[in-house]
Amino acid sequence: MTVISSTKSPEALSLAIVAEFDAGVERVWQIWEDPRQLERWWGPPTWPATFEDFDFQPGGQASYYMTGPDGTKARGWWRFTAIGAPDRLELDDGFADDTGNPVTDMGTARMAVALEDIGGRTRMTITSTFESVGQMEKMIQMGMEEGMGLAMGQIDAILAGQPAV
């Protein structure tokens, strides 16, 4: 399993998930900047993602949906706020309605991705920061922590060059 830790901090309103991979930082960066590779792991295995729009630059946006086993589509959006290739990415993250418009009552989370070289391997830390304890608790109750762990567990196969399933 690639995930080595998951830390919830209600005081900091954050959830940090750390994973390590047998690939260099530049290679791991590619799974973020290429929407086709991102689709292979963003979302748990039973909820694969499809990115409809992907403007990977500061101020750019992405829209996607994850399709559940019964065909249900859960939509989301990102707004890229900082991109420091190949080791730093920050974005605002939120839910969207059926037409792709942001759902404001769910709030917005800030996601920061840090990639660190650890002797030719890569440690990836994804830290989500929430607007309130209530939002954080709701997201964790909805399965965010478990879902991120399952999603990140799919990255090794991509990095090893295995074909999509």
Rank of each mutant, 00 (worst) to 15 (best):
E116L: 13
G60I: 02
S5C: 04
A96Q: 12
M66I: 09
A82N: 11
I31H: 10
T122H: 10
M139K: 12
V133P: 07
P35A: 11
W78D: 14
G119I: 03
Q162K: 14
F130Q: 14
G60T: 06
T2E: 06
Q30M: 09
A114H: 14
A74T: 11
T99F: 08
D22F: 07
P86R: 14
S6T: 14
Q135Y: 03
F54Q: 00
E131Y: 07
T2G: 04
K8R: 15
A16P: 05
S9N: 15
Q37C: 04
Y65T: 10
P86D: 08
M1T: 05
W29M: 02
V133F: 03
M66F: 12
A157W: 00
Y64K: 12
T108P: 00
D34S: 08
L15C: 11
T72V: 07
W78R: 12
I4W: 00
M144S: 11
D22G: 10
D22V: 02
M148I: 02
M111F: 09
E137L: 14
I140C: 12
L159V: 06
A164C: 05
D105C: 05
S6A: 14
T50Y: 04
L13A: 11
T81P: 11
I17D: 12
D117W: 07
Q37A: 11
P58L: 02
P48W: 10
D22Y: 06
G147E: 03
